[in-house]
Nucleic acid binder design. Sequence first.
DNA 1: CTGAAAGCGCTTACAG
DNA 2: CTGAAAGCGCTTACAG
Lengths: 340, 340
Amino acid sequence: MGGKSTLKDLAKILNLSVSTVSKAINNSPEISDVTKDKVRSIALLNNYSPNKLAQSLKSQRTKTIGVIIPDVLMTFFAMAIHGIEQTANSYGYKVIICLSNESLEKEAESINTLVNGSVDGLIMSLSKETQSTNDYAHFEEAIRYNTPIVLFDRTSDLLICDKIKIDDTLAAKEATEHLLKIGCRNIIFLTTIYGTSVGEKRRLGYLQAIENTGVEDTIINIKDYAQFECILIEALKQGKIDGIVAADELSAISTIKYSIKHSYKIPEDISVIGFTNGVLGENFVPSLTVVDQHATMQGSLAAETLIKRLEKKIPVEPVHKVLKTSIIERESTLPLFYAK
Amino acid sequence: MGGKSTLKDLAKILNLSVSTVSKAINNSPEISDVTKDKVRSIALLNNYSPNKLAQSLKSQRTKTIGVIIPDVLMTFFAMAIHGIEQTANSYGYKVIICLSNESLEKEAESINTLVNGSVDGLIMSLSKETQSTNDYAHFEEAIRYNTPIVLFDRTSDLLICDKIKIDDTLAAKEATEHLLKIGCRNIIFLTTIYGTSVGEKRRLGYLQAIENTGVEDTIINIKDYAQFECILIEALKQGKIDGIVAADELSAISTIKYSIKHSYKIPEDISVIGFTNGVLGENFVPSLTVVDQHATMQGSLAAETLIKRLEKKIPVEPVHKVLKTSIIERESTLPLFYAK
DNA sequence: CTGAAAGCGCTTACAG
DNA sequence: CTGAAAGCGCTTACAG
C-alpha cells in the first residue's frame, strides 16, 4: 500500500528483526514454521517483493545478460534476439539490448556501460567496423571485469571466449555447389556485407566450390544500395550469368527484384540463392532459396552457453559450437530434376 | 588490475577516506584541486568506474527503461525498438527488452520482474491477449511501484498513462479513401490482427470510409496463416474485388502473393494497400503501397516522453500524442491518373 | 529459533 | 578542505 514495502517495513509490522524476516521469506530452515507463516501472510498483504538491485549488490549477480548486436532491423538479428530472450527467460534471466549500429565506438560504449554492474555476461555479434578494423581494444574493459562473453555469428579468432556460429565457408560452398548441381555454369558471388567475418568467409566458400570446375569467379561487392540495380545489371550484361550466390537476405531479394525488372527470368534464366531464413525470402515471389543459419537456434545456444558459463556448469575451455546449416529449396533456384 | 576496483580500494591506496574519494571523483566543490588531481590519476590508473548497481540502490534510479512488446519479428516493433534505443541512449538511458509473445501472462511476468528495482519506467505495446480480454489487473504492480508507463501503438483507454499512437481509424479511413479515389468499387478489409485495438480501429475506419459510397462492406478475418490462401481466394471468387485494405504488412504481402498466384493482376485487377513501412513491402514486387505509421518515430517519442516524465520535465497530465500517418504510394495500387 | 552486526559499493548530510 | 557516520535494501556468518 502506497509504494514498495521493504524488509524493514515488514519487520516493524511483525515486531521481528530484519534478519528473521529475510530468512523466513527465503524459507530458511533456521526459522520456525509459525514465524514463516506469519511473515508470509504479512508479506503477501503488503505485496512485498524483494528489491532486485539490493539483492544484486549483495550477491554480485544481476541475473541479467547484455546483448550487443549491430542492428535489430536485420531479420537474422531479430530472430537471434528472439532465441536469446526465450532461453534467457526460461533460466530466469533478463535481457538488456544494445545496438551498435555497426559502429565500433557504440559497441565500445555499450560494453562499458553494461559491464559495470548491470549484467553478468555479454552476448555479442560484432559490428562491421570492429571486424574490418580488427580492433579489439574495447574488449579490455569486459576482460578486466571478468565478464564472460559469448560471440555468435560474427565472431573473431582474436577473441578468446565462447563462440556459436555456422561454418560460413562451408555454407557458401554448399550453396554454390547447389547451383552447380542444378546446372549453373556462370555463377557470381554478390555481397553487401563486405568487411564482416561472415561476408569474407562466404566469399571464400564460393571460391572453393568453383575451384577446378571451370567456372570463372566473379565477385560483386556493393557498398551502397542506391547503386545496387546499376551494378547488378551491368554485371549481368557482361556474361550470361545463370547463378547468383548472395551473401545475405536483402541482397538476394534485391537481386531477384532487379533481375526481373530487367526481364531476366528467375529461376529459368538465373538461379538465386541467399542467406538467412526470414519472412522476406519466404514471402517473396518467387520465394527465395536460402541457406538457413538457424538464427533463433544460434541465439538460444548463445544464451544457454553464457548462462552455463556464469553458473560454472561447463568446463573452462571455451565452447566453440559450429551449427550445421541447411539449404531450404524454394522457387528462386531451378529444381534438381530440371538440371540441364 | 585484476578485477574491478572500488572507492575503498582507491581510498586505501591514496590514504584518504572513501567519502573524500567519492567527492573528488564526482568533482565536488568541497574538495581541493590537488586532491582531485591525485584521486583522478589513481582512479584512471586503476581503471576505476563506479558500480552502477550501488549507485542505483543509493539514488533509487537505474537510468534503465523496460520495453515490453509482443514480438521482435514484426517489422513494426523492430523499428520501434530501434527508435526507443536510439533516443534512450542519447539521454544516457539503457534499455531492457522483454517479449510478451502476445501473451498476457508473459506480459504480467515481465512487468513484475522489471518493476522491482530493475527499471525506472516502462514502454509497452499491449499483447493481443491483453487487448482482447481487456484484463489489466497485472498493471497493478507497476502502479503500486509508481513506475511510469508509456503505451505506444497498441494502447488502451482503460489505462491512465502517457500514450503515443496513430489515429488508426483515420489512417484506415484514408487508406480506404485512397482506393476509392483510384476507382475501386469493391473493397474488402482483411485482417490477421483481429482482437487488437489497432485491428479493430482500422476496421472501423474502413467502414467509415465506405459509408454512403455504395460500396458493400466485407471483412475477412484470418486467424491462421495456413488458411490464408484458401480464405482469400474464396473471397475473391465471390465478387469482382478491385481493392483490398490489409491491416498489417505481412497480410498485405500475402494477399498480393496469393492473388498473383491465382492469376489476378496487381494492381490492374486489384489494388492492395497495407500498414507499416517496412523492408518487406518496400522490396516486394510489386512494391507495397502502405500507411506509414512512423514506427521509429513512435518508439523515439515514447522514449522521450518516458524520460521527461521520469525527470519531471513535463506536466502531470498524461501525454496523448497522436501521430499523423501518411500514405506511401507504390506499385500495388493503381496510380491516381489511371483512375477509371 | 531469533537477532545484532557486518558488508555489498556507493552518496551525502553533518562535524570538525 | 577532509572524514566519520548513516543509509539505500538486502543476505549471512556468528552469537545467544
